[in-house]
Write a protein that binds this DNA or RNA. Sequence first.
DNA 1: GCGCCTTCTTAACTTGGATCAACACGCTCA
DNA 2: TGAGCGTGTTGATCCAAGTTAAGAAGGCGC
Lengths: 242, 242
Amino acid sequence: MPANLASALITKLAVSNHLDGEDIRAIQNLRIRERHLGSREIIVADGDRPGECCLIVEGFASRSKTTAAGERQVLSLHIPGDIPDLQSLHLGIMDHDLISLSPCTLGFISHAELTEVTARHPHLAAALWRETLIDGSIFREWIVNVGRRAALQRMAHLLIEVHERLQAVGRTRGGEFSLPITQIDLGDCLGLSVVHTNRTLQALRGERLVETDRSGFNLLDEERLKELAGFDPTYLHLTPSG
Amino acid sequence: MPANLASALITKLAVSNHLDGEDIRAIQNLRIRERHLGSREIIVADGDRPGECCLIVEGFASRSKTTAAGERQVLSLHIPGDIPDLQSLHLGIMDHDLISLSPCTLGFISHAELTEVTARHPHLAAALWRETLIDGSIFREWIVNVGRRAALQRMAHLLIEVHERLQAVGRTRGGEFSLPITQIDLGDCLGLSVVHTNRTLQALRGERLVETDRSGFNLLDEERLKELAGFDPTYLHLTPSG
DNA sequence: GCGCCTTCTTAACTTGGATCAACACGCTCA
DNA sequence: TGAGCGTGTTGATCCAAGTTAAGAAGGCGC
């Protein structure tokens, strides 16, 4: 098993959990099937009943849902170390889509393997359970974001969130991070139209708060952005005790 | 231990999980501390580090969050059988408030007790993990609701959701169910102002889709409401296989 | 029974963000 | 090399929902 597959997971879990040697050995012994995807490919679709979970080793993915009326809403953004469809281990049917945002290296782990390893390592099971709880915590903040923040604050909040999460796994350079997302998708994250997404982004650029290009973002003044968004990092639970 | 405390949990878990005799015995043997609360009391507050989890035996509760700018957003509504702060078992610090919506009977279970029982009964642990995953699934639908549905559809969707959940635990009479929520709180669920919440509710009443009074709702035409909201129940995962 | 407070309701007015419509700027691929 | 497509940008217009304000209607304590 190539070490880099498991190590993405270990790095990520170690952010929010105390892993002991036994946990780490158990992860390293997982049978992980490597797979490479291009950009904008469907990893798991709404209505599927997958038999394995997908670990992001390299690249970005998003979960999204489309209403009966055809409106799309992005539900979450996923970064290396995430297992965005961990829920399929315990919920039979997918209720949304999981799509790659960039070329990705993925590691697939069968449900059977995960069931066995979590039964044998309750502490590791708790760590994964904890990951799904943090997932939920981020969903809650997105409800607040979309429900109660104006466009500018909303966008600032999202960008800071992604930056904090990437920073925790060592994937930022100062305020700069890679996130190859179109304005269409960004709007779908924020519940905004493309046009207004564009205008809002320009406002942030005009204030010299953010720089963007097709491949990522550069937060020019994190302090002022956090102030603007009213950002409180508690909900990310980025320490094992918090 | 009074049977009714544990039985609320058993009823609820049995909706979405196959419980065997051993699981049921384990739940019945849980040490649950009964407590009664009035309406609008804080059960757990943002920033707390609780040492126990709270089971709703009778009554209703909501989770909510207030932004730095002072805007409140309700994150979820909880009904008998729910453990709305199950997350505190694995996330040290609360990132939102949990408040009673009505007079409540609650059952408190210590983290120590839950840790022990989940370690000894992996199948029960999986059932509880599954509950937190369903929680997350409902959060996702709320993101869609607030992000991409117009006020009328949004309100219809919420009312159907609560009806379906209450129906699953046998707490509806036809389209009628109890939910003693003010229009202020309803607006905070939907990301709407009180004034517009009132207008929207009147529109639903005018269409003869819904009747309301202070204590609950009566869905007069579930079919037409579901049609209006574009409701797909998959995300509630109300069967053990789904 | 009276006064107070919260919630509900309605009306008038404002506004943030949606929609519609072009055009510009790369890519990709023939 | 140039057609076509997806994305980004801008301007004009519209509208759903917010805001403000004020009265009505119920519950509750005294």
